[in-house]
Structure formats: C-alpha cells, structure tokens
Design a binder for these strands. Structure first.
Lengths: 161, 161
DNA sequence: TAAGAATACTTGCACTATGCAAGTAAGTTT
DNA sequence: AAACTTACTTGCATAGTGCAAGTATTCTTA
C-alpha cells in the first residue's frame, strides 16, 4: 500500500516551512553565500572558507545542493581533479532573502559589537546597501546579473582572512 | 588563560553566518511564524501546530528563543498552568526576511505542485502580497504593527488543519 | 471537595547530523 | 619517478532531533 504524499515529502505546504526544510541547516546557506558572494567554485576553496566546515560535511552538502537544484557541478576544464560548482536560478532567486537576512543581522547588538577587523570596505558597503531601503530593486538585480554571468557579488575583492 | 572571543561566540562576523547560527535549525523560524503569523502564544497551541514538533524540542526551543531575546515569556493571567510567549522587536525585525522567504518558496515548482487544499484564502492573499514587489513597505509595516500590538498577521483567520 | 481532565513539561531511548582526525585515490607538478 | 595537490572516504565521538511514556501542577466538574 502506498501512502499518499500531498506535500511532496514535506511536513506542510507552508512556504516558511518549505524554505526551512530546504535550507534550514548549519551549512547550506553559508555555502551558497561563498559561491554567490565570494565566487568560490571548488571544493577546496569552499573548504578553506571562514567558518571551517568539515570535509565530510562539505562533500555531503555539495551533493545535496546539486541534487536539490541549487548548484550545478561541472568538471573544471584545466584540472581533471576539480569540479566547478555554480549557482542555479533557484539559488540566485534567494538573493533578496540574503539581503534581508544581512539587514537583520546588521541591526542586532550582538553583531554590531563583534570585532569586524577582518571585514573589507566592500563588505561594509554591502551591509549599508542592505540596510538602506531605497534602490533595493536595482541593487538586487545587479547582484543577480553578476552571479548569472559567472561573476560574484564581491567580484575582484580579496578577503582579509 | 582566557581565549579571546572576537565574534561573541560565533564562528565569523559574517551577517549571513550570524543569522544561520541564530536561527538555522529545524524549528526556530517555524515557532516564530506560529507566534507572529498565527497568534499562537502558548506551549499547547504551538505543540498542536501543523508540522508536529516534539514536546521536548518545543520546550527546549522556547527556552532558547526566550534567552536569545526573540520571545518574552509571561504567566497567563487567567490560567496559572500557562505561560504566554510574545515576539520581541528582535523577532518582529525578521518579518521582511520572512516575506522574502515566502516569496522564494512560492516561486519554486516543488511548492507550487503541492496540495494546497488546507490553505485559507488569506494565506493565498499573503503569498500574493509577498510576490508582488510594490507596496512592500506598507505591507510589512502593517504586519509589524499588528504583531507589536498583540495581534498577528492572520488575525481572525482560522486554520483549516 | 474529591475525581478527573488539562497543561506543561521531563525522561529514556533510538536515530540522524555534525565535528575532528586520519587515510586514500586520482591527477598534477617537478 | 617522486612529491604534491585535490577531493574525497572512513572511523569515531558528540550534539540535535523524534517518539513514547511518565509526572507535577492547576483547573474543572460532579
């Protein structure tokens, strides 16, 4: 006997729950951030990123993000050991949510009182833009255009850490 | 010897990571949704909600959301067994992010092909408003005003489930 | 006022997710 | 050919989550 599944394997039709079940874990959004904001496209580059994800978790999460349609995986043309991960439209469509998430964090005392010594001027500039409510549309569209054309939000910027 | 802690116990100063470390688990956002959108303010009401959270997890997550400043807890005036949970400004400030999250989910095929038979007209109306990019500001402010005054986004609406 | 019901938990146990260290296989560089 | 780089896998420990059952306090009802 087959059980019927009205919610495609989810626990409800609620769109909030849908997003949480898709991305509500410790690493998915952080990986998508590194791909879209920082232009990190290989396992090794993502592994070296700030928060220190474990090797097994990264491999597992990349598989999952690919099979869930957030990332594409293609062999690197110059090095047969590497695959390249790029954001799909499904991931690019998350950028407005990233903007609000950044704006929210930036408003919190706990965030403001952190040591931001490792932040670049470009990062502060982006936070400012997320907090500013005007020009929002153009700002988001330019980020999305960058990612769509193989670039990233912080194109050309080098991280301090 | 004390280790210094430049990021207030977080793994980086990144605002995306900050939000993920604050709310990136299976239940925190779902509970805040129930409080702010549906006006559920007691343990029992939250427990009966759609997705079926476990009793121990709910108790634990409520403690955490209170100590992290997302919810206040006050004894119910009419029933000494109950406490009432209300959203703080820290949680109310998340509503713009909720809106983008809802808009994103509503755009996805997996969500659109769900059985939405249990959804009320008011829920569809809210999804429409989240997808529409005009009037955004007024829409969000009216939601925030409702929650601030002890009401909720779906004030007066009864869930079908 | 005593009995039962409602409410908000706690406890125990299983299972899954995450974290860390070490190892491995394929491909690249020297 | 040897050394190195890259992308993993494996093993084990700890944390998070899920389920079922039990408990203490308060409220309602007979």
């Amino acid at each position: 006997m087959e059980e019927k599944d009205p919610f495609n394997g989810r626990r409800s039709f609620c769109p909030v729950n849908f997003a949480v079940e898709s991305l509500g874990d410790r690493w998915s959004l952080v990986i998508l951030r590194d791909v879209m904001f920082w232009g990190l496209h290989t396992y090794g580059a993502l592994l070296a990123s700030d928060e220190g994800i474990s090797t097994n978790i990264l491999a597992n999460r990349l598989d999952q993000l690919v099979s869930d349609g957030f990332l594409t995986r293609t062999p690197a043309p110059d090095d047969k050991r590497k695959d390249l991960f790029y954001a799909t439209e499904k991931a690019i469509a998350l950028l407005p949510m990233f903007v609000e998430m950044i704006a929210w964090s930036a408003q919190q005392d706990d965030w403001q009182t952190m040591d931001h010594g490792e932040a670049t001027p470009e990062q502060f500039g982006l936070v400012e833009k997320c907090l500013r409510r005007s020009d929002r549309r153009d700002f988001i569209e330019s980020m999305q255009k960058a990612v769509r054309t193989g670039k990233c939000v912080f194109e050309g910027v080098v991280r301090k850490s």
